[in-house]
Design a protein around this nucleic acid. Structure first.
Lengths: 215, 215
DNA sequence: CCAGTATTCCAATGAATATTGGAATACTAT
DNA sequence: ATAGTATTCCAATATTCATTGGAATACTGG
């Protein structure tokens, strides 16, 4: 028969059947990244990351570019982000009780209830959009008009955030906690801050938002 | 962190990371099926099928219905077929050289070159649409107006096929070989037969075709 | 060429998975 | 109740996979 056909498609499935690899894909959806940059961002060992990247590459989901001594990985295309989101949606639809994000929002330690989530893009008008991802990721593509203050430096740069407007913070995507942490920090300082429930991963997947890059 | 979020989505990935499970999903996209029906159709052992179904159920991709002594499995929803197709497309886009279907069509033994494939739904008008899947699957949903002659009985019922019209055969989906085998058989008898390159799986996934069911 | 850095390859270990046969369970029909 | 059928559970085996440390490779800058 054509047994191979299924096995062949299953390779894509295998590539996305590991939580660690999904985390790497989410990072790659932000910007191209070198192996050790991914290692630092994810906390996995370098050789572990390399091994996972080989699997992703073998399945055709990522491409590489050599720049001197280091190798930069990137998504093979926006459809890969699309597949991630499709799986995320499927998980939410089909295992609602266990929804990872709900778990994070509701059950968890409960402290996240203090950060209201913005769910529609309409609410963005007139608000101050703030990107709290690392500068490198901001440069590779960000929401049009958004400002950049990486979470690292937010405490010391808090003065740059306007106090007379609503502030909406976003980060890598629904699973990323940077925006929520940032919003919590700002609320503690009396700023009217909200965390966006989606981020660059979802925008890249949908293609609806044109993510401006900086030179 | 929210490590669990990724692990949780990865469960969906794991469920579709096995060729055998994909084959089962394709069968379930046709109609609900009992465990041993799936075992017979797929050639896997009953306990093996049962184990795979448990995995699919654990990931929330299939549901069960008890009917007396036997248990019928079905897809949790059309989105599951959608995910299958999304992965199939990703595989075709991203690993073009290895495309399972291309492999089947072109390289293989080459004999399949004898069966022209219909690729657009436009060509269906005025043709005689023939469904060669098992009767049970036809009853659960088929292309509007299509006739049913399961491949098993096609040789003996060949007289029912009109000789003055173009005949278009379809089956379960792109990976299913029933339609191509049927078309080859009919061409051998001088019938102007073509195999459809998509089938019920894709139609169910897209939702564009309304698959009529018989009482 | 040499030292230094980034990445991959290799080997080894432990964990998870697939498959199978046999026992256990759940239901039907007599 | 009893026999019969369909399915799942359990245990065992072989296979595959994830992770890690150390060696090998590929490149850069003196």
């Amino acid at each position: 028969m054509n047994r191979d056909a299924y096995a062949h498609v299953a390779r894509i499935g295998k590539a996305i059947s590991s939580g660690n690899r999904l985390e790497l894909l989410e990072l790659l959806a932000q910007a191209e990244q070198s192996v050790d940059s991914l290692s630092r961002l994810s906390g996995m060992g370098v050789t572990t990351v390399s091994a996972h990247l080989q699997v992703l590459k073998g399945a055709g989901l990522v491409r590489t570019r050599r720049d001197g001594t280091r190798i930069h990985y990137r998504l093979a295309g926006p459809e890969v982000a699309g597949l991630f989101v499709a799986m995320k949606n499927m998980a939410a639809r089909v295992l609602p009780g266990l929804s990872a994000i709900d778990g994070e929002k509701d059950s968890g330690s409960g402290r996240d209830d203090s950060v209201p989530l913005i769910r529609t893009i309409e609410e963005i008008r007139e608000a101050y959009m703030l990107d709290v991802r690392p500068a490198h990721e901001y440069q590779a593509g960000h929401y049009p008009g958004a400002a950049s203050i990486p979470l690292d430096g937010l405490a010391s740069r808090i003065g740059e955030v306007p106090r007379d407007r609503r502030v909406i913070v976003y980060c890598r995507g629904e699973f990323c906690l940077l925006a929520r942490d940032a919003a919590r920090l700002m609320r503690g300082q009396g700023i009217d801050a909200y965390a966006m429930d989606e981020g660059v991963l979802e925008w890249r997947a949908s293609g609806d938002v044109d993510l401006t890059a900086t030179a």
